[in-house]
Simulated scan of single mutants.
Amino acid sequence: MQAIRSRDTKPEKLIRRLVHAQGLRYRVAARPLPELRRTADMVFRPAKVAVFIDGCYWHGCPEHYVPPKTNSGYWSEKVLRNMARDRDTDQRLMEAGWLVLRFWEHESAEACSFAVSKAVAERRAQRGGEASL
Rank of each mutant, 00 (worst) to 15 (best):
A47Q: 05
D88M: 04
A109M: 10
R127S: 12
E77T: 12
M42F: 15
S113M: 07
V28K: 12
G73Y: 05
C112D: 05
T9V: 04
E130C: 00
R16G: 07
R124P: 00
K48T: 00
A119T: 05
E95H: 13
L14C: 05
R25H: 14
P68A: 10
Y74P: 10
K118Q: 10
L14N: 03
A121V: 04
E122C: 10
W58P: 12
E105I: 13
P46C: 11
S76T: 15
Y26W: 12
K78Q: 03
S108E: 07
T89F: 07
L99H: 04
Q22M: 12
R7T: 15
P32Q: 06
E105R: 01
F52N: 04
R37C: 10
W98D: 12
R124E: 00
D54W: 00
S76C: 04
A29I: 01
K13N: 14
A21L: 05
P67E: 01
E35P: 00
P46M: 02
S108H: 09
L80C: 05
D54T: 06
A30M: 01
Y74V: 00
K69W: 00
E12V: 04
E122F: 08
A109H: 11
P68D: 13
Y65L: 11
R16P: 12
S6Q: 14
V66Q: 02
D90L: 07
I15E: 01
V116L: 00
I53E: 15
P34L: 06
D8C: 09
L18V: 09
P68M: 13
T9Y: 03
L24N: 11
A29G: 06
P32Y: 12
L93D: 07
G55E: 08
I4V: 15
L33N: 02
E122D: 09
I4R: 15
D86A: 02
D41K: 10
F114V: 03
S76D: 00
A119E: 04
P34C: 05
I15Q: 11
L93N: 03
R124K: 02
D8K: 10
N71C: 08
T70Y: 03
S117N: 12
H59Q: 07
A111D: 13
K13M: 15
A115T: 09
H106E: 02
A40I: 09
A111R: 14
L18E: 14
A109I: 06
C61L: 03
N71I: 01
V43L: 12
G97M: 06
R124D: 04
C112F: 01
W58F: 11
S108C: 11
I15S: 09
F114G: 01
L93K: 06
R37E: 13
N82F: 11
D41I: 13
M94D: 08
R16C: 14
C56D: 12
G129W: 04
Q126V: 04
Y57R: 09
H64V: 07
G129M: 00
C56K: 04
V51H: 14
T39S: 14
M42E: 08
R17S: 14
M83G: 08
A50M: 06
G23C: 15
V51K: 12
N82I: 14
N82T: 13
R17F: 10
R27P: 12
R25Y: 05
T70V: 15
T70S: 14
R31Y: 08
R17E: 11
D54R: 06
V49Q: 06
K13P: 05
G129K: 06
F114L: 08
E110G: 05
H106D: 02
D90N: 09
R5W: 07
R27N: 03
E122V: 09
E12W: 09
Y57F: 14
K78W: 10
R5N: 15
G23T: 08
